[in-house]
């Protein structure tokens, strides 16, 4: 933690120590990511481990993602119809819902939900394995924990996130449709036709690119925080909180840069 003092020399010393500590932490985190990707690529491959994690991180998140997607789409329809009707453009409620979901809210909300649900669990699980010497036990048995624990979780995050995002988008548009057509009286044909004419493949795959990157952030941060957690229950508690906060903030920051880059790339 950065401490400021009235003594300039002490302040510079604290600042220097803070910068060194943070640089060291960043370095360790990047090396961890490099080792995880390396472990992912090296044989032997154990499909069972990957499928188990895909079940834990992906399949078990489906219901909550669908539920959030449904209500997000419904809220977007209400808000979109209200705003667009001020300009006499409420026929465009469908594209407003679909584009908001596919380009932005789908990937971001899916990532935040998966980080909250599965990221905390991954960090806690690896953290507990660390403090109860289970990771040391793996190493003593000549099993690489990067390959056995981190690579399957990382890969599952990268694969599951776009798939969950797809479910979020489809269910979200369905939620928007129910509200816009069923409750607000928009024509079903208008809602769907406007979506198909306004939404292009560019929007869909820019959303999926984002979801894939968010999946990497999820796997990287949640595994790293678990692997480097401190001692005891407090250490695991702190690591879990840090994991959720760091990954969520990283998703939102990276989202801005990705949106800027992808919009520019695909607009050209």
């Amino acid at each position: 933690m950065l401490q400021l003092s009235m003594n300039p020399a002490a302040t510079i010393q604290h600042l220097g120590r803070f910068v060194i500590e943070k640089t060291e932490q960043w370095g360790r985190a990047w090396i961890f990511l490099y080792r995880t990707i390396l472990a992912l690529l090296k044989p032997p491959y154990r499909p069972y481990l990957y499928l188990t994690q895909l079940q834990e991180i992906g399949v078990n998140s489906t219901l909550v993602i669908a539920l959030i997607g449904l209500f997000t789409g419904a809220v977007l329809a209400v808000q979109g119809e209200y705003t667009l009707s001020k300009f006499g453009a409420n026929a465009y409620t469908g594209p407003a819902v679909a584009l908001s979901l596919i380009r932005e809210l789908g990937p971001v909300l899916t990532a935040l939900m998966v980080i909250g649900r599965a990221g905390s669990a991954v960090t806690a699980e690896i953290g507990i394995m660390r403090i109860t010497e289970q990771i040391d036990a793996l190493r003593s048995m000549a099993v690489d924990p990067m390959k056995y624990l981190m690579a399957p979780r990382f890969a599952a995050g990268v694969v599951a996130m776009p798939l969950l995002c797809g479910i979020f988008n489809v269910v979200g548009i369905f939620g928007g449709y129910i509200v816009a057509v069923g409750l607000l009286g928009l024509s079903s044909g208008t809602f769907m036709t406007q979506i198909t004419s306004a939404v292009g493949f560019v929007d869909v795959y820019s959303g999926f690119i984002k979801a894939t990157v968010f999946g990497m952030i999820f796997g990287w941060v949640s595994c790293y925080k678990g692997y480097t957690c401190g001692f005891g229950a407090q250490g695991v508690n702190k690591a879990t909180t840090q994991s959720v906060v760091t990954a969520s903030v990283a998703v939102l920051i990276v989202d801005y840069f990705l949106t800027s880059v992808l919009t520019r790339v695909f607009m050209e």
């Binding site: 289970q134 003593s140 690489d144």
Partner: peptide, 22 residues
């Protein structure tokens, strides 16, 4: 790690808390 693993193959370890996989 792979070189260390070759040497570790001759080891068996009983940990303080047994360190079993839950």
């Amino acid at each position: 790690e792979s070189k260390k693993n070759k040497i570790r193959r001759s080891l068996g370890v009983l940990f303080q808390s047994a360190a079993l996989f839950d």
